[in-house]
């Protein structure tokens, strides 16, 4: 990739970081905190996504 294209992309990503930072800070300071039961309910479907992706990778490798 051209160097200047990389610089433009880096600037855009940096702007995204800059825009996202206040929201992240607000969520960390004032967002609701989950219990271990809440996290289990979230990890279950995300774990299923991970297994599904492993399955897809195996499928395209064969």
């Amino acid at each position: 990739m051209d160097f200047w294209l990389k610089v433009v992309l880096a600037v855009v990503l940096g702007m995204m970081l800059w825009r996202l930072w206040p929201a992240a800070r607000h969520q960390l300071d004032h967002g609701p905190k989950g219990t271990s039961k809440d996290w289990q309910a979230a990890i279950l479907p995300i774990g299923a996504v991970v297994l599904f992706i492993v399955f897809l990778v195996m499928m395209v490798r064969n």
Binding site: L20, Q27, G31, P32, G34, A42
Partner: peptide
């Protein structure tokens, strides 16, 4: 209610953007 994931997701996005840069 998955609103408790907000902080984790936003920080995760910051880390991913940093790694992409």
């Amino acid at each position: 209610d998955f609103s408790f994931m907000g902080g984790f997701l936003f920080v995760g996005l910051l880390v991913v953007f940093g790694a992409m840069i």
